[in-house]
Each structure stands twice: as C-alpha cells, then as structure tokens.
Amino acid sequence: MTTPTPRANSGPSGTSDAPAVPAVPGPLAALPDADPAARERLHARLVDGAERAGLLDVAYRTLETPVGPLLLAATEEGLVRIAYGVQDHDAVLADLAERVSPRVLRGPARLEQTVRQLDEYFAGRRTRFELPLDLRLSTGFRREVITRLPDIGYGRTESYARMAAAAGSPRAVRAVGTACATNPLPLVLPCHRVVRSDGSAGGYAGGAEAKRTLLTLEAA
C-alpha cells in the first residue's frame, strides 16, 4: 500500500506496473461516487424539467404483464412503440434514439394512461384501447395494414389473406405478414388477431406463446 503523501505532480509515471488504478485523492474521497437517493431525485427533476421545456421527445417505461415485460414508449403526440422482452428493449431504445430522437428518458408519467388500459386489458376488463397513437414508425402499405387491425374485434381473428383483400391488395398476403411482424404497436394495434388461413396462429413479434396467451385471454 502506498502512503498518501502529498505529491506535487500526480502524474502516475510508471502506472503500467502499479497494481491499482490511480485513486481519487484522499481529500476528495469523502464525496460519494454513488448516491441513489440523489440520483432518483435528480432524475425525476430532469424528466419534469424536460417535459415542461418540450425536450422530452421520447418517454419510456417497462411494465410486467402476463406476456412478459413490455417496453412502452411515447412521444408528445402519443404512444409510439410497444416492444416485447424478446425484442431486446435496449435495442428498441437505440432504434427509437435513431429514428425518432436521441432525447430519450425514462419517464413513467406520460405512460400512465397506457399502463392503466393495458392492466385493464390483461384483467379482461377492456376490449379496445383508447389512446393517442404516434404512427411515425410505420409508413406506406404497412401503416395501412396496421391501422385496420382494430377493425378485427376483441376475441375474433382474421386471416392474412382476408387482411390483404381488405387493404385492396389480395395478393399481398406476405406483405400483410411483414406489416404485422413489424407492427410498432402490438397489442394496441392487435396484430395477434391475424392468423393463418388454416386456423393456426402463425408467427408473432412477441413469440408464438405470447400470441396464444392473448388469443386465449380474449376467448375467455
């Protein structure tokens, strides 16, 4: 152990063979390098200040549900993204930073209404969502498809083929599948209600099991 004698020059020439990294000098070591209470307090204050200054471009939180943890993200316009755990929440946040804005903060307040409605849905007390949506992550034909999804009522299903026909392109069955697979707002735009023509469930962004869980919930 080195004695903390005053050094006029702190330059650690020869640190390569020193066992430890240069330390925070004794006089400053009293200042805590982690302060969880202050961190929470300051984070809340930052989110609050950002919201009031119009700088909270994307607010997010996670929610535990019967289909696993969901990432919920909203812009000032509305809910912009829901992502399943299997979709890797960190990757989804990085994608939001790139495609929407890097001003992304954990801010649960903006998502209160979404959380309440999802809780009601999973409790079987809600059959449709009434939330402002921001559809900017979906364009063109895909957007056309996903905005029609709420037409499939709670507890019912529709085939990819009939969705394609409804969108005016009966031969675009595969494109409908892609639109559902890339739906930025699953659950709220119920792509889980689109199934194969033979009645089997088909794929789902949240995984086949999540799709079965949702269809079972709605059939009850």
Binding site: P4, A23, V24, G26, P27, D33
Partner: peptide, 10 residues
C-alpha cells in the same frame, strides 16, 4: 491523512 479511493473515476 485521508485515505484515497480506488474507483471507476480512477
């Protein structure tokens, strides 16, 4: 006599 601290900052 204050003890230095080894951290990430270090």
């Amino acid at each position: 006599g204050r003890t230095e601290q080894r951290t990430d900052a270090g």
